[in-house]
Amino acid sequence: MPRFWVVGEANVDGSIAKISTEVATLARSLAADAGAPDDIAGIVVAADPARAARELAAFVPRVLAVADPTAEGHAWAVPTAESVAAIVNEDADGIALIGAGPDGRDVAGTLAALTGRGVLANAVGVRWDGRLVVEMSAFGGNMVTAEPLGSAGEVVDHAPAAEPTLPRVIVRESVAEAGAAVPIEEARIIVSGGRGIGGPDGFELVRDLASELGGAVGATRAAVDSGWIPYSQQIGQTGKIVKPQLYLALGISGAIQHKVGMQTAETIIAVNRDPDAPISEFADLLVVGDLFEVGRALLVALRGRSG
């Protein structure tokens, strides 16, 4: 019976979520360190799990595909947690891993109650040291590199939890909104705007830079509270916690409440008028100047480079 279980999340089109491939890669190294490289499997719960299960099997040797019709048309986390609980409960030492996005949190909380096991959220580092050891900062968020196996693993059909005991919540309608192309939890690069952006129009430049760099758009609480950008993009102590490879901060002073959401980014570059802003103490590079002038010049430089 596998010791490490990776809970796979599917995208709207049925493909595997990028964050799940990253979690699977991490789980594989944990299983190897635990001396049990084969004790690992994925679980995908969906109305039609075939594609996501097949794609996850590129990362782990075995994937259980659970076809649960209630996973469609209903909030996904609860039926998923029920099926995962039934599988994980067969093994007293089993460890389930899931990405720390909003759906992952919902699954983790439900699963914790159904199994009575401990839960560690927002891990920034996970290792095996005779037992599971997780680094969390009060201020976590996790991003690891995804790396497929040499050969694809097998996909095994698995029945959903026999008796659903938790109520299903109906999804009456799903609405897609523009501007949320890359979820910020998954982004390798985040271009973020603060109060210095000055208004909703200013975020056009932030979006252009994010698009040119292949990244996502983030924001401070001040920018979100001003209504310039949706709450889903908020980073900080009262928003999301991220750990991208690059955090490009435009017009962000770097107050502590924002800092805790992004301080573990690998590279932090700031553009700010104020050379003494708090971000000057923890950025790798601070360009002192007008964010619109520097931002537009950067856009030109990046486009010239790729052209």
Partner: peptide, 13 residues
């Protein structure tokens, strides 16, 4: 409910 790509309208008793 806010989702990664927009929002869902949920209903429950």
């Amino acid at each position: 409910r806010i989702t990664a790509t927009g929002y869902d309208l949920l209903e429950a008793p």
